[in-house]
Amino acid sequence: MRGDTPATTAATANASATPAGTPGSSASTLADRDNGELRIDRVSYEYGGGRHPVVAAVDAVDFRLPAGRLGALVGPSGCGKSTLLRLAAGLFEPTKGRISFGSTSPAELRKRRRVGFAFQDPALLAWRSVRHNVELPFDLAALPTDRAWIEELLAIVGLTEWADRRPRELSGGMRQRVSLARALATKPDLLLLDEPFGALDEITRSELNLELLRILSATGTTCLLVTHSVDEAVLLADRVVVLSNRPCAVRLVYDVPEARERRGASRDTIEFLDHCRTVRAALAG
């Protein structure tokens, strides 16, 4: 499934070294995934300066996310979660500390088109069909379109029948699925999701949570998710990072036991509620 585009060529060189049994190892996975751990090493970020006051947004945040796993960032509104996500995408440079993904930096990873980003607002282009919206990253990154993968992606997100429709013809949940597919279009090593389900109703949100788990299981992509919902974080993530108020610092890094096996069937179990309670307690400080 990977390595079809020029940008992925280098990454596929050592694909055979991928250990069997890891997420996504059923397909030819990336070399970078061997050691594709996302490392956030005491990262701080300040913005402003000059005529504007310097504002500290992120303060010595330190955590790791193993390859092929899903991490969730939970914290109060405006604490700097999205800034942290942009730092992980290489869109901002840390003021202090270092971010790496495997042996490479996020900026380098982004240059190689190996980062996928889904925003809270799906921001689909009204003049493009669903299929062409999913193909957009290829156009923007000046890469040849991998049509077979696009069709596969549309099937993964369950939108094959809607592929020729325009975004206005879709429901909110379907739009978010298109946005997810678009973020996965260039087969990223690192998928960053900035509250992608924040604007959706509870039913659609639950449906998309399951959808996301299924997609990530299918693609084996390392994913960092920003969410306001503790339930969502515990349900989806292998590792939940609880952040404090601005400037955000890590309050708790919580590894959710048996997260991969749990899937969507255990929201009402005592264990699940216990995990949520732990995370909520850390969030409350």
Binding site: M1, S26, A27, E152, I156, G158, E169, L170, S171, M174, I203, E207, L210, E211, L213, R214, S217, A218, T219, R263, G264, A265
Partner: peptide
């Protein structure tokens, strides 16, 4: 690439049910 075979049946069934919801207005 197909959906991961290890995904529990409940998850697939739940997704199928969600997809059968009335098309958007």
């Amino acid at each position: 690439m197909n959906a991961v075979s290890s995904a529990p049946i409940e998850l697939e069934a739940e997704l199928e049910a969600a997809r059968r919801v009335t098309p958007p207005t």
